[in-house]
Design a binder for these strands. Sequence first.
DNA 1: CTAGGGTTAG
Length: 649
Amino acid sequence: MRSPEIVLKVVGVCRTTNFLTQLHSLTIRTYDTHLAAKITELYFELLPLQTARKLFDEIPHPNLYTCNRILQRFCGKNRYEEVSSLFTSMFSFEKVDHFTLLFALKACSALKATNFGKTIHGLGKKYGIIHSNMFLGSGLIDMYSKCGNMDDAFRAFEEYSKPDIVLWTTLVTGYEKNFKPEEALAVFTGMAMAHCISSDPITLVTVVSACTQLLNLKAGKSVHAHVFRMGYEGSLSLSNALLNLYAKSGSMFYAGNWFRVMEEKDVISWSCIISCCAHNDATDRAISLFDEMIYKGIEPNSVSVISALQACESCCNLNKGRQIHELAFHKSLELDKLVSTALIDMYMSCCSPQEAIIVFDRMPNKDPVSWFALLCGCVKNGMVNKSMQIFCDMMASDIQPDATVMVKILGACSELGVLQLTSCLHSYVIRGGFISNSFIGASVIDCYAKCGSLDEAIKVFERSTDKDVVIWSSMFAGYGIHGQARESIKFFHRMVTDSTVCPNKVTFLSILAACSHAGFVEEGIEFFNIMLNGYQLMPESKHYAIIVDLLARIGELDKAMCLINQMQSRVGVHVWGALLGACRIHQNAEIGEVAARNLLQLDPDHAGYYILLSNVYAVDGKWDDAAELRGSIKERELKKITGQSVVRL
DNA sequence: CTAGGGTTAG
């Protein structure tokens, strides 16, 4: 077997390294370009990168065309390390062409290797092929954009005196993908004003995406009108981009209407509308749309499954969630990390942490987000010890916790109330360099306060160099927890006079809570008014709940009721709960019934409300009503969850 | 052998 043709045929079948070594020496001797091309491909396909490069360097006359083909093949397979390595070997060539550079640029984009990209840019100039065609231009702009370097992308763009539509679009897309939607629209405007350039459907997709980022419905609509004028409504991607714009701008109405009239719909369109419904309290509609999609024979992908799972999550539809899980399993979509994480979220929100843990354990490669979902879910389900365990496992698996994880775990720790653990986490926070993050600082303060050590909380507060509104608020709350409303108020004045920090809604919530905890009725009401009139902050349900509690406690039930009637925001359970609790103390069955009826409407399965109401009846002497209520608790098989609070020093 | 686009996320 001396003929290269025969060798080539054999190469296709036999792929052992041993055989490859023999072929290599043959290739070096024969100088055959076909053989060289084929074997180059095999080196990079089968051997470790370094070995492949070494062998390739020994080949006397590799052919540019075939090397380009190999680069292209590896680009198609996303094997960019190989691309970059082979390209570097090609430096010894007398000349490479724009195809070579284009594939190399693709590798730079994927590997985010800006410096290497700049080298290629320079090579292009050296070889004088930069302006040989527009392909290299868009490749350069795209490379700089994908490396997050828009300044160089723009400079590359400026090197072309007559940019074509693709070049313009690449630049617009670069700005949009780098979260600079204003710049994207500005470039688009520049393009529209440039001579002989009119936008095409692909450009408009990006323009619509920029409008979506800006939540600029008005601009988006005018693009939509332009789409109709140009007759582009047949473009599916463009239709989907518009659908996404309507969905994201919170306009379910527009989204639904546009979805209905869209000529063609694919799985992306369906995912988009399902996600829109799931995020806008139309969970049942989201689920029925998902069913409809399946019924119509549209193959679900991970995105549609995730959106449907989110719908199940927010309406606690465990059975439907399980059904979708099964579907995802059969379609092998559970392999997608985002799907698994959505499943964990769903099971955790539907109060089935065991199933969530099973999903997590099955994940072959867990990412920080899935760890976080598991940790949050355990906290949400009251499994605080378990969440601490997860935190340890996470570090044992070499996953570095980030700021969000730290905030969550500190929250869990404050619930556990173990002071030693708090100081442990505090040291970890300092060592990890997290202490400058004000959310974490505030969590540490809160954690110390809840574990009983106000002194430590104050130390952390005084030591923090950059006290922002979050840190201050956590300190007000800390004093509040310890019943020291006086100190809390003193600190509030210190903040207002000594710093430039402006209080927000959370600040007032902390202050109000402190007043409520210490029974400072007048001060509480005064702060409520300062918030409303002094700072023009709209109180939310939680603020009202505290004020209602304060008023109701001193027996001003009518005033409290009056305040509730004035509320513009949704009246939450805490507001009615505060009122009902006070009605029991002040023996007002009339208002108590109103409060209870509203409560049971908001949360029919909460045993505590039934018991509170039955107590209201009892003190009023309405024994029959009380008995009937107690009966319905038994009927519904509701159990009162007993409260516990623990501090371990 | 070659370039620009749409849905998910704590």
